[in-house]
Nucleic acid binder design. Structure first.
Lengths: 99, 99
DNA sequence: AGCTTACGTAAGCGATGACTTACGCAGCTG
DNA sequence: CAGCTGCGTAAGTCATCGCTTACGTAAGCT
C-alpha cells in the first residue's frame, strides 16, 4: 500500500498491466532515468506486487498475481471491518438532511 | 490514494471506522501530538475521505461515505483495466515453466 | 576473447513531508 | 463577563524519499 503512494511508481505499476516490460523500455515512457525506474521496481517487488524474469540481457517485469490477490483481499477486509455498518448509520444520518 | 500513503494517517483513517471521534480523543491513542493529528485529518478531508462536524467545542471527524464510494469505484476500475486479461496470461504462462 | 547491451547498486543531492512548539480563536461554564 | 477547554494554523526542524550521475556486473554477439 505504501508502495503505491508515489505517483510515478503507481504509473509504472499500471503500465505493467499491459504485460511484461523491460526496464529500459519502461524508462523510455517516463520522464525519469532508467535507474529511477529500477528503484521503483525494486520497491514494488519488495511489496510483492511485481515479479522479475530474465530474458537475455534484459529483465522483464510483470505483475505478481499472488501479491495482487493479497492486496485485493486486504482491501476487501478494509471495507468490511465495520464499514458496511458505518454506511447504514451514515445513510440514516443523511435521511433528513437535504445537501 | 496518496492520502493513504502515510502509515499514521492510514491508522487514523482506520480508527475512524469505529465511528466519529474528536481530535484530542484521537490523538490520545497515537504517539503523535494533537496538531499532527489535525494535519492528518486535514489531508484526509482534502482527499474527501473524512468529514468534520462540530459538537460543542470539539470537532468530530467521521468517514465520508461519498469519498469512500469514489475510492471504491476507483479501485474497481483498477482491477478491471486489463487485469483479468493479465491473469489469464499469467496462468497460461505458468503452464509449462518450471521456474 | 573482446565488445556491446541492459541492468542493478552506490553515493550524493534537493525536495517533499511529517512532527513539534507556540500562538490565536471559537465555544462552553461558572 | 472572565476563565477554561478544545481545536486549527504558523513557523521551524529533521528525517525520508525520489532522482541523478557514476560505477560494477551478467549475458548476447562477432
Amino acid at each position: 500500500m505504501d508502495a503505491l503512494g508515489d505517483p510515478t511508481r503507481r504509473a509504472i505499476f499500471e503500465r505493467l498491466k499491459g504485460g511484461a516490460r523491460a526496464v529500459g523500455d519502461l524508462a523510455g515512457e517516463f520522464p525519469v532515468s532508467r535507474p529511477a525506474v529500477s528503484q521503483h521496481l525494486k520497491v514494488l517487488k519488495r511489496a510483492g506486487l511485481v515479479r522479475d524474469r530474465r530474458a537475455g540481457t534484459r529483465r522483464l517485469y510483470e505483475l505478481d498475481p499472488q501479491g495482487l490477490e493479497e492486496l485485493r483481499s486486504y482491501l476487501e477486509t478494509f471495507w468490511q471491518t465495520g464499514l458496511a455498518d458505518f454506511k447504514q448509520a451514515a445513510e440514516q444520518h443523511r435521511k433528513g438532511s437535504g445537501s
